[in-house]
Design a protein around this nucleic acid. Structure first.
Lengths: 190, 190, 190, 190
DNA sequence: CATGAATGAGCCTTCATTCAT
DNA sequence: AATGAATGAAGGCTCATTCAT
C-alpha cells in the first residue's frame, strides 16, 4: 500500500534530484529542496535524518543501479541482459539532469568517504550479480568485463561521440565484453 | 624573471590543487588552503580576488590544457602531436590527485555558469588550434575527431581498463581519430 | 478513583523527572521524555499544554513541598513536625536524581520569571502554614526561622558534611530554629 | 602588554557573565552576548571556538577560584588566609549576578560532563593548595575541612540567614574549620 | 606585501507546537 | 485519547570577504 507518507518522501527525493543536479550537492541548501517540493524545511529532516542522508539517497539513484536491477529481475541472461541494460542506461542518461547528477556523485565519491563506501559496496555487489547472470560465474575476468561494460557506457553518455549511433556503439561494446568468455568467442552478431 | 610574488602565488596554487582535490571545491575553505600553504588567509585574497577566482585558476590547471599547449608549442603536427599529447595526458592523470581534481572540475562545470563559460571558451579555442595542427584545417568533422580523442583519453584515465596497456590504447585511439581524414586513410602506423 | 488517564500522566511526570534531572530542563527535548515514557510526543502535549507547564509540574515536585505537606497533614506540631519534615527531607534528597533536579530548579528560578513566581507563591504560603503549625503564629521572626530551617536542610543535602551524622545535624538545626520562640527557649530536647 | 585583542575578549567575557546570569547558559543565544558586547556574532566564535568554550570560561569565573588564588598569592597562611578568602567570598556573591551565575554553573555541572570534569579538576587542585597553606599539609581531614569551609560559605551566600551577621558567621565557620587540626585546637578566638 | 581581527550572510539542525486522522 | 506528520522559528557554527595596521 502506498501511503501518503511514501508519496511525500518520494516527492522530496524527486525534487532533490532536480535541485542537486542543477546546483550540486553542496550548492543547494536543504531549504531550496524543501521550497521546491512545497514542504517545510523541517519535514525534509523528518524523512531524512540529515542532509548527508538525503544526499546519499539521491546519489544512489543517480547511479545506474536501478536499471541494472530491473534487468536482473526480468530474468534475462547473457547477451540479452546486456542489451537490455545498455539500452536503458543510455535512455536514462540522455536526460541532462541524470547526467549531471552522475557527475556530482562521482565527484562526491572522491571527497566523502562515508558516501563513497556506501556506493562502493552497492556497486561491488551489483557487479558480481551481473557477472553471474551474464557469464554464469563471477570470475575475476568476468567481473572486470562487467566493469568495462559499465565504464564504457558511462563514457559514452558523458561524452557521446557524434559519429557513432547508439545501436552500433552498443553492439560493439557488448561483443567486446562477451569475447572474454569462451562460450561467446567467435560468436559475433555478424 | 621569477619574482618572489610569483613564487608565493605559485605555492598557493599548488597547495590549492592538493586541498581542493581532497575536499572538493566547496568542501575546502580558503582558510585551509592558506594554512597548508603557510600563509595568512588575507594573502590568498591578495593574490586571488575571490575564492571563485582561485577555483577558476585551479580548475584550469585540472584540465589537460597545459599539456596540449606544450604539445602545440613543440611545433609538432599530425600523428606525432597526438602521440605527444596522449602520452602526457596519461602521465598527468595517473596521479590520483589530478584525476580527482578533474572530476571536481567536471562536476563544477555543470553548476557554476561563469566558470563553465570560461572553461568552455578555452576548450573551444584549443580544440580548433589542435584540429588545425593535426589535420591542417578545423572542419567540423576534424573538430569532432579532436573531441573524441580527448574524450577517449579522459575515459581511459578515469576508468583505466586493466586489459589494455597504455601503448596499445593510444595507438588504436589515434588511428581511429586520424581515420576521419582522407590524408590519413589506410595509412596505419604499421 | 485512579483512572487510566492519571496513570499515564503520572508516568510521564515520573519519567520527566528522571530525564530533566539528567539533561536539565533545557537540555532534554519533550521528544526524549515521550520516548522514555513510551508514549507519543503528541500525548505529552495532551496532558501538559506546553513544555513550560511540564517543567513547572516537575519543578514543583523537585521542591520539598510534598514532604512538608505530608508532615502538615499528619497533624504534627512543634518539634515533632520539624523532626518529621527534616527526616523526610534528607531521605528525599539522598537520591542524586532529586538533588540534581533541585539544582536545576533553583537555576531555573533565577531566569524564568513566571515559573519563579509560581514557585515563590507556593513557597511563601507553605512557609506561613509551617510557621503557624510550629510556633502557633506566623510572625516575621517565625517565618524567618522556617526559612532558616529549610535553607539549612538544603545546604546539608547539597553538600553533606562527612563529619556530621544526620541525627546530630537535625537535632542541632531544630534546636537552633526553635530557640527563636520564647516557648521553646531553654527547652532543649535533653 | 594589554592588546586590543585582550580588551575585546575581556569585554565579551564580561558581557557573557551578565547575559548568562540573567538568562541562563542555555537561555541566552550567543547572538545576544554579541549584541550586548557590541560585536558581531562571528567575533565571539573567533575568540571562543564554540559556545561551550565560552560557557566554560564564564563558568570558571563564576566559581570562587579567583579570590582563592588571590588570597594564596598574598602569601597569607592559617587563619588570616581563611579570613581573607571568607571576606572576599561574601563580597563577591552579594552581587546577585554572581550568585545567579553560580547557581547556573552548579546546575550545569550536573548535566555537562565535559564542563563538570574541567571544573572538578580545578577545584580539586585548589582545595589541596588551600589545605597546604592553611594547615601545612593536605591530609584527608584537612582537605575535608577546606571543603566544609567553602561549602559553608556557599550556603551562606546562597541563602544568607537574616539573624547572623557576616562577621559572626565567618568567625564561627573559621573556628570550626580550624578545630580539626591540633595546632589550632583550644585556640579559639575567645 | 602580509597579517589576522572583524563582519555578516547563510546553512544545517533542533525542537516546541499544532493538527489531521 | 493517541499518534506522528508537518511547521516554522531560532540557534550554533562556518566561511567568504573586508579592512585596519
Amino acid at each position: 500500500m502506498v501511503t501518503r507518507k511514501d508519496i511525500v518522501k518520494e516527492r522530496i527525493l524527486t525534487v532533490a534530484m532536480k535541485v542537486f543536479s542543477k546546483y550540486g550537492y553542496f550548492g543547494a541548501p536543504v531549504q531550496l529542496v524543501a521550497k521546491e517540493a512545497d514542504v517545510s524545511k523541517g519535514l525534509v529532516f523528518w524523512y531524512f535524518r540529515s542532509k548527508d542522508e538525503l544526499i546519499l539517497e539521491v546519489a544512489k539513484r543517480s547511479l545506474p543501479l536501478d536499471l541494472i536491477n530491473r534487468g536482473l529481475e526480468k530474468g534475462l541472461v547473457g547477451r540479452s541482459l546486456l542489451e537490455s541494460i545498455g539500452e536503458e542506461y543510455i535512455k536514462k542518461y540522455v536526460d541532462p539532469m541524470q547526467r549531471n547528477l552522475l557527475l556530482h556523485t562521482m565527484s562526491l565519491g572522491v571527497t566523502s568517504p562515508d558516501i563513497a563506501v556506501h556506493i562502493r559496496e552497492i556497486c561491488e555487489r551489483t557487479i558480481i550479480r551481473l557477472a553471474e547472470r551474464v557469464f554464469g560465474e563471477a570470475t575475476l575476468p568476468n567481473r572486470v568485463a562487467m566493469r568495462a561494460f559499465l565504464g564504457g557506457l558511462m563514457c559514452y553518455t558523458l561524452r557521446p561521440p557524434k559519429d557513432i549511433d547508439e545501436k552500433t556503439f552498443l553492439e560493439n561494446l557488448i561483443n567486446m565484453v562477451l569475447s572474454v568468455s569462451k562460450q561467446y568467442k567467435n560468436m559475433d552478431s555478424s
